[in-house]
Design a protein around this nucleic acid. Structure first.
Lengths: 256, 256
DNA sequence: CGACACGTTGATGTTAGTCAACTTTGGTGG
DNA sequence: CCACCAAAGTTGACTAACATCAACGTGTCG
């Protein structure tokens, strides 16, 4: 229940074997759900095999953390399945989610000594982890991989900066509306239970508290604004986690 | 007056000539103030000469924009001297500064079709601009340059995410205190009129309005909080733009 | 069935925004 | 040099938005 399924693949092959028609050992990568969308897509088969050699699969349960804020940067990873959050907090306990990560996204801090934010699974998740030192070395030898990573990082920086405008300047109502549209778009992307068009009905991978932590609002304000949108007939909330966008045009208007 | 001087160099050589002891044409780069700190530092002399061939110097007056939000990404650049802001806004005129850029920083959006934020000079500035297409091609052929750019982008992403916590969760007082400490640290860095230690006395390169746009506050709130810090004896405000940190420990406490 | 986490709703308080008047500063030209 | 002006900054009174505190559902699981 409640768990969001977020992967393009049905069942994956979890055994090693021979890739059909080739002599080389078959790697996990051949059957990877995010093979063509993650940064690995930059690599030739032989390089991919080498990368596979230094990585390993790992599963995370919802709520489990992979990386902790302020610690040495030990791990980096690709997300194969699931949704994770990046978060920081103040000493006195205020938390802020600074990023949300979906399948095919890259996580961790390569080329840096420490990690500036925690990484925690919001749903059950599967990731492909590398020791940072191994990854750094490998990346240094494979410019195409670094190029992909650079592109991704630039996109992420743009998105993050866009989010600053929302945090600093938008009202609670605008924040919630923007958030719902964003979720609709993102969960509609390939790899997330869908065909690429924005969804009008979806399950949120977040609790009210987490929505608050993303938008810089309290749980009560989130609840009130959602209720208000529902009263206005713009959305419906069939269950706690489910959202249906009834009037997208108006919702976009509310988003400011 | 009021212009902040922000460059390591005194006078630069602005004429071309022969680099002493070499046969190749002397490039601007040889005398560039940020030669060793900008991403160009990754390049060998011959490569640097090639890069120099596709770039050109440009000066900007305070207030002048180099790049506009939403436009095609035509230019990228290195900052040689001066301070610039990156900003976005909503349709109804609310503005948010999403980044501040100092000498040796890189600006613009390589490998992408459009620019998501404007770049405007806050002080008189000097930059080294490249046509994006030229830069993209050059970067593709020089992995060391891309590596430097990747590192810088990762650092910038970390900093930006840290700033989200401030925007979303900190009070006006904490924002102002954090901001002053940040400015003290940044203006104390090499390249900005200093020796590398945080400054206890400096001129802000920002108007009250711009401080508000950075912190997500109104001009009145900025003014009130600064006045309050002054009343508390934590800082002094000798002139409009000047700040003196009298009690750094307390200021850090206020910063939360 | 009962416990518990999660979510909603209401009453009240605080913070920062808004509107408006006023002051200071720096620049310009008589 | 000084008077004047526009722009920037400050201060005060009031308001709106969101947080806080508290009580009250609701769905889930043992």
């Amino acid at each position: 229940m409640g768990h969001v399924r977020c992967s393009a693949a049905g069942d994956l092959l979890w055994h090693r074997g021979r890739a059909p028609g080739t002599g080389r050992p078959m790697s996990y990568c051949d059957s990877c759900a995010v093979r063509n969308r993650a940064i690995c897509a930059a690599l030739e088969p032989a390089e991919l095999a080498a990368l596979n050699g230094i990585g390993r699969r790992r599963t995370l349960e919802a709520g489990e953390s992979l990386i902790w804020e302020g610690e040495d940067s030990i791990l980096v990873a690709n997300v194969i399945e699931g949704i994770l959050k990046l978060s920081t907090g103040t000493e006195d306990g205020r938390e802020q989610i600074v990023g949300v990560v979906y399948p095919s996204d890259f996580i961790g801090r390569p080329f840096g000594a420490t990690t500036r934010h925690s990484v925690t699974a919001l749903t059950d998740a599967r990731v492909c982890v590398f020791a940072r030192a191994d990854f750094d070395r490998f990346a240094g030898e494979h410019p195409a991989l670094e190029h992909k990573l650079l592109q991704r990082t630039l996109v992420e920086l743009d998105r993050t900066r866009g989010w600053m405008l929302l945090l600093a300047r938008k009202s609670a109502e605008e924040k919630i509306a923007t958030f719902l549209l964003e979720m609709s778009a993102h969960l509609g992307e390939p790899g997330c239970e869908s065909d690429g068009r924005p969804l009008d009905r979806f399950d949120l991978p977040f609790s009210r508290q987490q929505i608050g932590d993303i938008l810089g609002l309290t749980i009560e304000t989130v609840s009130r604004q959602l209720t208000k949108l529902k009263r206005d007939g713009v959305i419906d909330l069939p269950t706690r986690r489910a959202v249906e966008i009834c009037d997208r045009a108006t919702l976009e208007l509310y988003a400011g």
